[in-house]
Write a protein that binds this DNA or RNA. Structure first.
Lengths: 197, 197
DNA sequence: GGCATTAATTATCTTTTGTTAATTTTTTTG
DNA sequence: CAAAAAAATTAACAAAAGATAATTAATGCC
């Protein structure tokens, strides 16, 4: 039976889908819920699914040899998430994906989604748009590392994603920016001091 | 008249093209040559072309207020190059693209290329592959900033792209890695010293 | 091949970051 | 609400990076 919510979800994302396509997609996708703190994808595993985040926030991190972890990315509402080591390189994930909040995903098997996309020219522009957006996001992150100081990088993140910064502990924001939590704390202090003048 | 070289170029990239498609593509593309040092795209300009690098190497850089320049990316043989500020965001380029060596490009108008790609489902998988490769490259560059020290980042670049490192002055490599030329010189010294033991 | 230019290295000093550990603050939870 | 746990801040010191300038090395060019 079709879930009305999922039908409207696919309609909102893919324009030009007919009811048969929608039926196909809904049939092979399902909702998955994660509790805050729950691990979604374990490091070392192979997880060939593509998920759309309806609600919540997921952090992907790398576990260093010394036990520290480093945040690689954050994903939240209306974004796609997948183990890119699996999807792109076909190798086990170097990262752990963990829900930071209670999270609701709509999941679909990556290979099957591929097949549908490959057979539906109408969907190719939506897929293209998604990829292009992800590329744009990744490139501007590279630019932030090359062009900005850690302090400017933090300021930019606060300016552009204040809501996200507030949903995630600073220590995870720090490593996302390529610095240590201690260093971020000092940066925050410098900003606060220069602000009151 | 069709240029045999360009025909074989398109055949090598896009599988499944018929002769009419090839004809279309060749008709609207052309070869462009740049001398070493020549500027390809000026910062502030709008350049809506997509180019394939047949030979040579192009550096994109950002001019800082103090007159310094910072390398954003390097592109070489068999890669695509375009002003991503124009293509993705539709705004004037913040960067200057300059040939580091004598370079040969095959250029095509981006909008026209889009139109052809949109109308040829057969090409969509090649386009998808290109985008996915660019995304993978960009993401692993982000990872290198988050997971590695400047020294490790340099080592990795030397290990994976020794040929490219040798074709570009160190001062451009330094800013590509997010550090100053002086700092790269010190890193190189540290590596050399630790190596002879 | 020698001169001019550019790139790379070195030196000096300042600033920032990393590391480790202690302390304070905030959040969670029984 | 209080105890426990987690996060953030601070301190102290070491290591690395930035800035600027001088020096040396390499490259380009008539």
């Amino acid at each position: 039976m079709l879930n009305a919510e999922e039908v409207s979800f696919y309609l909102s994302i893919f324009k030009g889908l007919d009811s048969k396509d929608i039926y196909e997609l809904v049939k092979m996708s399902h909702t998955r819920r994660l509790a805050a703190g729950e691990v979604y994808i374990k490091n070392g595993s192979s997880y060939q699914k593509l998920a759309y985040i309806k609600k919540g926030l997921i952090r992907a991190y790398h576990l260093q040899e010394n036990g520290d972890d480093i945040t690689i990315l954050l994903r939240w509402e209306n974004q796609l998430i997948a183990s890119h080591d699996n999807i792109i390189y076909g190798k086990p994930s170097r990262f752990t994906y963990q829900a930071m909040e209670d999270t609701v995903l709509i999941e679909i098997d990556y290979q099957k989604a591929q097949a549908i996309l490959d057979n539906n020219p109408k969907l190719s522009s939506t897929r293209h748009t998604f990829l292009l957006n992800m590329l744009a996001e990744s490139m501007s992150r590279v630019e932030s590392f090359v062009l900005l100081t850690p302090e400017e990088r933090y300021q930019q993140l606060v300016n552009e994603k204040a809501d996200i910064v507030n949903r995630v502990p600073d220590k995870y924001i720090a490593t996302l920016l390529g610095i240590t939590p201690v260093s971020l704390s000092r940066i925050r202090k410098r900003i606060a001091l220069s602000g009151r003048h």
